[in-house]
Design a protein around this nucleic acid. Structure first.
Lengths: 126, 126
DNA sequence: CTGATGGTTAACCATATGGTGAACTATAAG
DNA sequence: CTTATAGTTCACCATATGGTTAACCATCAG
């Protein structure tokens, strides 16, 4: 999971993924839009590959790459889950209290001594 | 955008965000579940803050932090958009051809010389 | 065989990251 | 005033990242 988000944290790599959405491409094609050296392209591709976002298939001397959306889906799922959890939980209530009375959180907790960890993501390490 | 994904690329930070989903917390509370030093916690919080995912409000000597889901939503939007784009585009077709005939991509392009960049994400730098 | 092309590897550089311990600031409590 | 608590800043370390150039491997074309 870490490596997926890390791979997505670079604009060049995100651009390469966007390119791969349109169909498979060679390493050269992937790097063409960017004014960086070939080793740099090679490194970016390997980062994507190690994150499982890109799959490589040597065909003669060219490496044909295609996208594997699965890890990105996982990352997206984490985000969605987290956001959903933020919205409900004691969400609107807690935020209302917190925005209104300064010490609301503590006084509110008096009514519910439970640490309320109902079903939060809490590190879905896979 | 880079910094948001980078901030999400660390399990500790993701855990802190999950914690923040349950309501605001102090720096100490955020770092409590992890066996790391206080400066380390401080750094993680600052990373989240610079990514816009966390907002800080000094209240006496404690820093009360709350989550701001906006940047995460943007990141999620990029992922969803990319995935949606992967699914349609010349998606299923291209993948079918690519999985069947080795040189399918080139021969298929004969019918559509356009570089077909219809509406892909292509770096939604903001 | 020779050469051009597609990629990788190796060595290197600058900067960032995640961590530490020690010292410091500032507020709260005695 | 004194002490404890919450956090930060500082100096440092190890490792990773993004980039370079130069040299190399492998394949396709003459």
């Amino acid at each position: 999971m870490d490596i997926v988000f890390a791979a997505l944290s670079d604009a060049t790599r995100r651009g390469m993924l966007a390119r791969l959405c349109q169909g498979p491409a060679s390493i050269g094609e992937l790097g063409a839009p960017y004014e960086i050296s070939k080793p740099a392209v090679s490194k970016h591709v390997r980062v994507l590959e190690r994150a499982g976002l890109l799959e490589r298939r040597r065909d003669g001397r060219i490496h044909r790459c295609r996208m594997n959306p699965q890890p990105m889906q996982d990352a997206g799922a984490w985000i969605e889950q987290t956001q959903r959890f933020w919205e409900d939980s004691l969400g609107a209530l807690a935020r209302y209290l917190e925005d209104t009375t300064p010490t609301a959180a503590d006084s509110a907790d008096d009514r519910d001594p439970e640490q309320h960890p109902p079903n939060h993501p809490t590190e879905n390490e896979r």
